[in-house]
Amino acid sequence: MKTIDARGLSCPQPVLMTKKAADTGLDEIVVLVDNPTAKGNVSRFAANAGYEVFDVENDGEYTLTLKK
C-alpha cells in the first residue's frame, strides 16, 4: 500500500501522482486530497484504471482508498 498526499495540489497533479503509483501495479493506494474537484478527478481516473474507490470526508479533506 502507498499513501499519496495530494492536499493543496490542483488538478491534474493529484491524478498524475495517482497514475504514477497505479502504473507500478499497486493493488491498494490511499490518496489524500482537499478539494472536491481533485476528489472527483482522482476517483474517475481510479475507476477507469480498475480500482474500487472508497472515500471518507473529514473537515473538507478527503481520504480516497483505491483497491483492486
Partner: peptide, 12 residues
C-alpha cells in the same frame, strides 16, 4: 519535487 508522502502535513 512535490513529495507524494506528505510534505503538506503540518502546514495545512
Amino acid at each position: 519535487s512535490v513529495s507524494p508522502e506528505g510534505a503538506a502535513v503540518g502546514v495545512q
